[in-house]
Design a protein around this nucleic acid. Structure first.
Length: 366
DNA sequence: TATTCGTGGAT
DNA sequence: TATCCAAGAAT
């Protein structure tokens, strides 16, 4: 904490703010959520951008605002449609938290996104970064918005060697931002730090020769810009063996299942599946037994149509994909439905299920 | 605090 | 091919 305190005193704060903000105003990308400062749109964009690239978010953002133009529209929407709007974006609890928070804003705050740090931080899905981003960008309030970009950029500028993988480290950077932030234009300042991280001060091989704040950068001065930030943490993924089935009824409809309301891919639809375990039993027999035991569904498996690998951040699914027929009359419910191929479009599926549908289509074409 | 939450692009 | 990682939050 002492090191960065000394380094921050080496910075000419006014010149730094001016160089950074001037660069941002000239070089910023033209992004759909920068067309106005509607707090709702800023909010939606910030949730979508969590751990997600700008290029990925753009089409999702445009469609989401088209479907749900206002807080009221989103508050009143069916959750299934909201999840459909998020289909393929990942981290699906983000959008369920967003809708929940939007309902709270509608009811408790008369539809106006609160502008106090305490109130906005209490909303579901709004953490320290998102609270600061909305407050500064939509309301011009000088609050820190410390994301991965800001930690990378400031770790270099201030030569901060704390491990940014540790949650406690964010506070170090929030303190630095409180010292550095422009009170004239907090929105431009915060966005400029992130834009600099995205365009110039990139994770590998930063473009220091193009950097508008190079002369303020302690890391560049020391020649350590490629060693910062310090980020430990290893990703240990575990393997899970699954078997999924495309199960048809007599009329050719497909059986789909709604996942539980918490945990992985919560509330999304999927092709029914079971987790396999090591056994002397052959896989085909085990799948039939597990469908019976876990789902209380009797099926006749036809054939295996292929294997699919799907990689999450923390685990890997290896899925054997079967086709089959349902061996009794199924009672449909909130959790189980029989639908036609056309009706599949109405349901939100994770990418793993979409891979299986594609695999089946490829089989048909052979 | 460490882990759980997706996905697809970059290197 | 494998690893990392991108505008984080909840638990």
């Amino acid at each position: 904490m002492l090191i960065e305190q000394e380094n921050i005193e080496n910075i000419n704060i006014n010149a730094f703010q001016n160089d950074l903000i001037t660069w941002f105003k000239n070089e910023q990308r033209n992004l759909p959520w920068r067309k106005d400062q509607d707090p709702y749109k800023v909010w939606v964009s910030e949730i979508m951008l969590q751990q997600t690239r700008v290029d990925t978010v753009i089409p999702y953002f445009n469609r989401f605002i088209e479907w749900f133009p206002t807080i009221e529209d989103l508050a009143e929407a069916e959750e299934d449609k909201v999840l459909k709007a998020w289909e393929g974006l990942g981290y699906y609890s983000r959008v369920r938290n967003l809708q929940s928070a939007v309902k709270e804003v509608k009811e408790k705050y008369n539809g106006e996104v609160p502008s106090s740090p305490e109130e906005i931080a209490r909303l579901k899905g709004v953490g320290p970064y998102t609270a600061g981003a909305i407050l500064s960008i939509a309301y011009g309030i000088p609050e820190p918005a410390v994301d991965g970009n800001v930690m990378r950029v400031l770790s270099r500028i201030l030569s901060i060697w704390d491990d940014i993988a540790k949650p406690a480290t964010r506070k170090v950077f929030e303190k630095a931002v409180r010292t550095l932030i422009s009170h004239e234009d907090p929105s431009a300042f915060n966005q400029a730090l992130m834009e600099l991280g995205a365009l110039i001060c990139t994770p590998t091989s930063p473009s220091c020769l193009l950097c508008p704040v190079r002369e303020h950068c302690q890391g560049f001065y020391e020649g350590v810009q490629n060693e910062l930030p310090i980020k430990t943490k290893k990703t240990k993924t575990r393997d899970v063996q699954l078997a999924a089935a495309i199960v048809f009824d007599e009329s050719g409809k497909i059986l789909i299942h709604k996942r539980p309301e918490s945990g992985l891919l919560a509330n999304l639809w999927e092709l029914p599946s079971v987790e396999l375990h090591h056994s002397m039993q052959n896989e085909r027999e085990q799948v039939i037994d597990l469908f019976n035991q876990n789902h209380n569904i009797k099926i006749n498996l036809e054939k295996i149509i292929g294997q699919i690998e799907h990689v999450f951040s923390h685990l890997i699914w290896n899925i054997s994909v079967y086709t089959g027929k349902i061996a009794f009359t199924l009672q449909e419910s909130e959790e189980w439905k029989l639908v036609t191929f056309e009706e599949l479009e109405e349901f939100a599926f994770p990418v793993s299920s979409q891979k299986m549908f594609r695999l089946y289509q490829e089989q048909l074409e052979e």
